[in-house]
């Protein structure tokens, strides 16, 4: 039946939302949740494994890893949301516009997207940072711009499929305005693949941010982000594996959370699956 809440249908979304929600809470209430300050050094307990006092152990200069993970969620989540958001919104607008109006509009927009696409993501981000200046916010914008071509191509392909459907032709024949056709007839029917792409972009953004931090272009030490924790941890794999595993797990959990939401929404919103 169409009324009533179908738990089975929404189960993956709920699962994903619980994971992402927990991480968001950590990010927002980090000072209340974290057992220690993420910056306090304690040379007495360097490179320790998990223990009762330090649940996830300590890093190379004795900072509590759990606390740094919790604080790290702040920047990592901001980067993920803002960067993926920029990519999703601008990419969709560009892709839908290109497909709908076609012709010269399509050609100019898509050639420009291909230009963006032809730069390696890191290089593009570096070039953008060089012109925008180095800051965490600029890192987010740069990463977001890197995502735009991917979203735009996907949005364009999806729109082309929808444009061939007869209901778009009917909408034109009824006399609907371009804006109404774009927002009411086309956009709702292309969100599913875009949502899945957004979930992937979220996770990729976290990794890209870490690469930028590594190059000294993102968040700077001692500011904890999952990316730069992972980078630092790499150097201590032999002495203390938990230093890499902990941020790795945090990224992994987040990615799973977002993917569950993305995939789940796609299925749950698919009108053909209702019954």
């Amino acid at each position: 039946m169409s009324e009533g809440f179908d738990f089975y249908r929404w189960r993956p979304v709920i699962f994903g939302a619980v994971i992402v929600g927990a991480i968001l809470i950590c990010a927002i209430f980090a000072p209340l949740i974290a057992p220690y300050s993420p910056y306090d050094l304690d040379y007495m307990v360097m490179l320790q494994g998990p223990s009762a006092t330090h649940w996830l152990g300590t890093d190379e200069i004795g900072r509590d890893i759990l606390s740094r993970i919790i604080y790290g969620a702040r920047i990592s989540m901001q980067v993920a949301f803002i960067a993926a958001g920029i990519g999703l919104i601008f990419g969709t607008v560009i892709g839908v516009t290109a497909a709908y109006f076609g012709g010269i509009t399509d050609m100019i927009l898509m050639r420009f997207m291909e230009l963006l696409f032809s730069f390696p993501a890191i290089l593009l981000a570096v070039v953008l940072m060089a012109s925008l200046g180095t800051s965490v916010l600029n890192a987010m914008i740069a990463i977001g711009i890197v995502f735009i071509p991917g979203f735009s191509r996907l949005a364009r392909a999806a729109t082309e499929v929808v444009l061939r459907e007869q209901y778009v032709e009917s909408a034109r024949a009824i006399g609907m305005s371009h804006a109404r056709i774009l927002f009411r007839e086309i956009t709702p029917n292309i969100v599913a693949p875009l949502l899945v792409e957004a979930a992937i972009a979220f996770s990729y953004a976290i990794l890209l941010e870490s690469a930028l931090s590594f190059l000294g272009l993102g968040a700077q030490p001692p500011e904890p982000t999952w990316g730069n924790m992972l980078n630092t941890g790499r150097g201590f794999m032999a002495q203390s594996a938990i230093m890499s595993i902990a941020p790795g797990m945090a990224i992994f959990l987040t990615v799973i959370g977002f993917n569950l939401i993305g995939d789940g929404l796609r299925d749950a919103l698919d009108p053909h699956m209702k019954d």
Binding site: E165, S170, A173, P188, N189, P271
Partner: peptide, 14 residues
């Protein structure tokens, strides 16, 4: 007014 062929794609599924 038009009427089109394909009942499956004549309407916005959403």
């Amino acid at each position: 007014q038009p009427i089109f062929q394909n009942p499956a794609s004549s309407f916005n599924p959403r």
